[in-house]
Structures are given as C-alpha cells and as structure tokens.
C-alpha cells in the first residue's frame, strides 16, 4: 500500500515541477541598471557594440540548441543586437559569479557590461524583443 502512495507522490511532484518549469520557461527578469563590476572575462570578451545576448550553455543541455536557433535568428534580423554562446560546462566560476543555476540562461548586456535583463530557459522571441526594444539603438 505504501508503494501506491509513493507512486502517487512521485506523480504529484512531477506534475508540480512540470507546471512550475513551464510557467517559468522563457520568463524575462529585468535587472537593476548597474554595471556588473566583476563581469567574468569570458563573458566580457563576447561583448559587441549595442546589446549582446550572451547565451550560457552546457554540453548536456538539449534545449540550448533551440534557444540558439531563436536567438541567432533574432539577432540576425535586429540592428544593434548580437548573439554569442558561451559553453560553461567547464566554467563553474562564471556561472557562480553570475548566479546562474540552469541552462540555457541568456543575459542581455550592453557594450559596457551593464546587464539589462536575463532569460531563464528557451526565450520567447516576441516578448524578448519587446523587452529589449528600449535598449536597442
């Protein structure tokens, strides 16, 4: 009988995690407009004029591929927007200092290293463009 309860519990937990992640997927969080003083060098090296979407990925991340397709296409069609992918599989210090827990996570950074927003999971194209609009030239 305990096994039945364990099974029901596991199903409930899976349902809850599934709903939570679906709700959070692609959610944009705006950041305070302060320049991150200790922006890690591998990230800083990627910054281009305008706004750079720095996508943090790992070797083990299947959705990172979908995020890359969406972001690359968005950057190609938008003036002043660049997409760069950083493989952080072997760069735990970078993710720790940025407070990133999951991949893909995408940071929108201006050329001076100011983080304007970040997106957890696979971004939603239209809402991301909407949120980036005020920061684009």
């Amino acid at each position: 009988m305990t096994g039945v309860w364990a099974l029901l519990g596991a199903l409930a937990v899976a349902g809850a995690i599934g709903v939570l992640l679906k709700v959070r997927e692609g959610r944009i969080s705006s950041r305070s407009k302060a320049v991150v003083p200790d922006l890690p060098a591998p990230v800083r090296d990627l910054l281009a004029p305008g706004v750079t979407l720095v996508q943090l990925s790992t070797t083990f991340c299947a959705p990172c591929r979908h995020a890359k397709v969406i972001l690359r296409d968005l950057a190609d069609r938008t003036d002043g927007l660049t997409h760069a992918e950083l493989d952080v599989t072997n760069l735990p210090d970078v993710t720790t200092s940025l407070g990133v827990m999951r991949t893909p996570t995408t940071l929108a950074l201006t050329s001076d290293g100011t983080e304007v927003l970040r997106v957890g999971g696979v971004p939603k194209r239209d809402s991301l463009l909407e949120a980036l609009r005020p920061h684009l030239p």
């Binding site: 995690i17 790992t58 991340c61 299947a62 599989t89 991949t103």
Partner: peptide, 16 residues
C-alpha cells in the same frame, strides 16, 4: 516522467 511527458531533462538543465 518529466522527460517522457514534456521532453524535459531535469538533470541536463540542472547540470550546473
């Protein structure tokens, strides 16, 4: 189950 139903790989996303 998350993998089967939603195609979600929890371990992969939480690798970090």
């Amino acid at each position: 189950l998350l993998n089967a139903a939603l195609g979600l790989c929890l371990g992969c996303e939480m690798y970090l």
